[in-house]
Design a protein around this nucleic acid. Structure first.
Lengths: 214, 214
DNA sequence: CTGAAAATTTGCAGCGTCTGAAACTTTCTC
DNA sequence: GAGAAAGTTTCAGACGCTGCAAATTTTCAG
């Protein structure tokens, strides 16, 4: 997956390979035994590199599971830009949801990989949170975008609240997606959750997608 | 503060003392230098106990900052009960908010202590999240209560979504409360945030408490 | 093709968190 | 006061993670 032939030097290609290999092994081992029962030595050893090298690629063991991508900050900026580029008639909630779409869609596109990843994350309580709302940097970027979009003061509660709400929506819908084995598109669950927020969190009644009725 | 004379044995009293001492020292040192620059040895040493003993009281260094209380699970159950005991005419969001009240009010009651705590938490990204939504057990208890209250299926997205939303409300309002130096009651900020949720997250306009206008 | 420059990997020493187990000390109970 | 119960300490050790300097690999100019 994601095979794109680019004119990369040997060095770059090897780095990509090593990184991908580490991610793959980390995921497989953690899925088998739980992340706590996998050491960095295990992962590095199986990948044929030293443990020290593992840490040249990932700042922590968790990161090999949570941040397979090279540039999370860049991705966050991309989301922030989409947020600002969304049609003016959308309220911030809807604009945020639209901005998140491509990110959410990736779960459906790389379904198996993400399902495995989440099976690991689910066992460890704090990981799901880290997956979405971990970095202080991430928060800063997105909250700033919301401040711009709304024209509110940077200290206003609203942008931060919305940021956390979106994070909650991601977490809850991803969890449900995982339970359903990915049989329903995450984008649908995500949209349903956003609708719930938009409606002020009324008790749902008979919403097939949410309740999982046939 | 919180001095209640109870017929506790010497043993129990000493334990309470030690625990309180560890919390106090941990908070003071972390506020001074940041949690990362405080070792468990520092804390234990200053408290006059061994590092091993520290870990008999707290499962991790963070916990001395985040979980000063002895029985977080019990507290969570208390919240769950209040959730179920709330007037039937309240929707789940309002019922949850009401159930959270005593917990939220404690921040205002023990203002200085919490402000210091939050000053520590704010520096470390993931801590704020852990403060509210850390344990898998906490989630299970509260989500189960919401399932009961709503009569929805245990797998329904709604209860978990609401749980995360409430967590987000707590995080955002607490952050704002800290910024304001506790000059506004957290309960007010919390209620304002709940109102935002209830209204479907519309862009606020001229809400004094939220924007911090005089 | 060659040799120096640049980037990457590695070994190693070391700090800090956290755990289990056994020995030791304090408190409780009768 | 003696034994039981509970708490504390010491110790050994696994593991995560970091800085640093040496060794290796890739690149690139000539």
């Amino acid at each position: 997956m994601t095979e794109e032939e680019q004119p990369l030097g040997l060095r770059e290609r090897k780095k990509l390979e090593t990184r991908a290999k580490l991610v793959k092994i980390a995921i497989r081992l953690a899925a088998e035994r739980g992340l706590d029962n996998v050491t960095v030595d295990d992962i590095a050893g199986e990948a044929g590199v030293s443990a020290r090298t593992f840490f040249n690629y990932f700042a922590s063991k968790e990161d090999a599971i949570l941040l397979p991508d090279q540039d999370p900050v860049g991705q966050t900026h991309a989301i922030a830009e989409k947020m600002l580029a969304a049609p003016a008639e959308l309220n911030p909630l809807r604009a945020s949801a639209m901005a998140m779409r491509p990110f959410v869609a990736r779960f459906d596109e790389e379904r198996e990989e993400w399902l495995t990843r989440i099976s690991i994350i689910e066992r460890d309580p704090g990981l799901m949170v880290k997956l979405f709302a971990s970095q202080k940097e991430t928060e800063a970027i997105l909250v700033e975008a919301l401040v711009k979009r709304t024209g509110l003061a940077p200290t206003d509660l609203y942008p931060r609240l919305l940021y956390r709400v979106i994070g909650g929506v991601m977490q809850a819908s991803t969890q449900r997606w995982y339970e359903l084995g990915g049989s329903v598109r995450l984008t649908e669950l995500f949209d349903a959750a956003i609708d719930s927020i938009d409606a002020g969190m009324p008790v749902p009644s008979g919403t097939a997608v949410i309740e999982g009725k046939s």
